[in-house]
């Protein structure tokens, strides 16, 4: 393991009960301390399942078939459920797209954050209340003391997302997994929340696994980016390098299909992402690839380091 690595996902393969094919895999990547790592891809590429697996969380029916998720020196997948639960929240916080689904509608947001503080840090009463106010002001909630008594439905979408971030920070974790945390927000509010993630990283030295389908959002926040396609990482590079000189044909096609200000012509990538169970035997992108050669249909390419810190899964590169 290289120095400063906080989380290491090794050869992770996820399967589903009753199905003979994998949903995700094989995925390997490492997250350094204080780094924002962006995981980007289209729906069904496996980015959300990969993100949950980093907390050893699996939706019902999904289970790891192989691989390890190592946080510092602990393999989360080998821990019993009870210990995993202690790990989550305390060391790794989770933020979802829709805070309304994650917050309990019948308790005040203050109560919900205090509960986490008691569970993970043993704070209660006045101490928990003071810490909640501090967390609320850290995440930029206006009038933090008044917010304690609000119910989730009384807050705007942006404020709810700030509450959820405060809750994820309550256990004082080292890593946040944020799955599409700004997708449900309006652009002007999204800009504020993205700014908040950058501030939190700078202030607390947090590592963030930032999952999004939106290339522009990833470009805004991530230090390094991994592009996923059909259950695996096809390219991984530092942010600037990925956006200025993408090497994998899928990354290039995705960037050319993404409208930005001043785009005159969008290049169309025909076809769609193959769902799990229909992945081709060779390169999974080959059927849609404008640059494929006969070998691509035969041989599954490895994720190779082409330049320092730049890994690409393509036979032609």
């Amino acid at each position: 393991m290289e120095g400063g690595t906080l989380l290491q996902v090794q050869d992770l393969v996820l399967g589903c009960r009753g199905r003979s094919y994998p949903l995700v895999g094989t995925v390997s990547f490492g997250l350094r301390a204080g780094e924002i790592f962006g995981l980007v891809g289209e729906s069904g590429c496996g980015k959300s399942l990969t993100g949950l697996a980093c907390l050893a969380l699996f939706p019902s029916g999904v289970k790891p078939l192989s691989g390890r998720v190592i946080f510092r020196d602990t393999d989360l997948l080998s821990l019993p459920e009870e210990k995993r639960r202690k790990f989550r929240g305390r060391h790794i916080g989770l933020i979802f797209q829709e805070p309304l689904n994650a917050l309990n509608p019948v308790f005040t947001v203050g109560h919900q954050v205090e509960e986490v503080l008691e569970l993970h840090r043993g704070l209660s009463g006045e101490k928990a209340r003071r810490e909640t106010v501090r967390l609320f002001s850290e995440v930029g909630l206006p009038d933090p003391e008044l917010r304690l008594r609000n119910y989730p439905h009384e807050l705007s979408g942006g404020m709810r997302q700030r509450v959820m971030i405060a809750m994820a920070l309550a256990g004082d974790p080292d890593l946040l997994v944020a799955d599409e945390p700004t997708t449900a927000l309006d652009v002007t509010v999204q800009a504020q929340i993205l700014e908040l993630f950058l501030e939190l990283r700078a202030r607390r030295g947090l590592s963030i696994l930032f999952i999004s389908h939106d290339l522009a959002v990833i470009r805004e926040v991530a230090d390094r980016v991994a592009v996923m396609y059909a259950g695996e990482i096809v390219e991984e590079a530092p942010r600037e390098e990925l956006f200025s000189s993408p090497l994998h044909p899928y990354t290039r096609a995705l960037l050319a299909a993404f409208p930005r200000l001043g785009t005159r012509k969008l290049e169309v990538l025909p076809g769609q992402v193959p769902p799990p169970g229909t992945w081709p035997r060779g390169c999974r992108f080959a059927p849609r690839c404008p640059e494929k050669i006969p070998l691509c249909a035969e041989k599954h390419p490895e994720l190779k380091e082409i330049r320092p810190h730049h890994r690409v899964r393509c036979l032609r590169v």
Partner: peptide
């Protein structure tokens, strides 16, 4: 200015 993509400081301007 809110369109993401470039890391630049933006004015914070509440919510609608």
């Amino acid at each position: 200015a809110s369109i993401p993509g470039e890391r630049k400081k933006r004015p914070v301007a509440g919510e609608p």
